[in-house]
């Protein structure tokens, strides 16, 4: 199949920076899907534990992208880290 590896979308770069600063640098960016008709400008981040790491399901005004974090930290820790470090005006972090 033809295709290319995806990179982190611009709106999620602050999320990656917070994670990297906290020592979580093994971040894999998933496929980018476009979102239509979303008026909310706040980025939604759902934190979920998956086998071997943490899945962040992120939805911005225009795109959806999953970030996989390969870390030993719990979902609770990542949730707390993101909630405390990201601006609440721009990001809405939810646990699951």
């Amino acid at each position: 199949m033809r295709g290319k590896k995806t990179t982190i979308i611009e709106a999620l770069v602050p999320v990656a920076k917070v994670l990297t600063k906290a020592g979580i640098d093994e971040i894999s960016a998933g496929y980018i899907r476009s979102v239509k008709g979303r008026k909310d400008v706040v980025v939604d981040i759902k934190v979920r534990e998956i086998s071997g790491g943490i899945l962040l399901s992120c939805t911005t005004k225009r795109y959806h992208q999953d970030l996989r974090l390969y870390t030993n930290r719990s979902g609770e820790e990542v949730f707390t880290l993101l909630s405390q470090s990201l601006s609440q005006e721009r990001f809405r972090v939810r646990g699951r």
């Binding site: 199949m1 033809r2 295709g3 290319k4 590896k5 093994e26 971040i27 894999s28 390969y70």
Partner: peptide, 26 residues
């Protein structure tokens, strides 16, 4: 631009495919 290849694509009718390592971080 190749991310994966199935054996029939090199003319071999077997059920094998390989994925390009560069699509993974690890």
């Amino acid at each position: 631009d190749g991310v994966a290849l199935a054996a029939p694509q090199i003319g071999v009718e077997k059920r094998i495919f390989v994925v390009a390592p560069f699509i993974f971080k690890h």
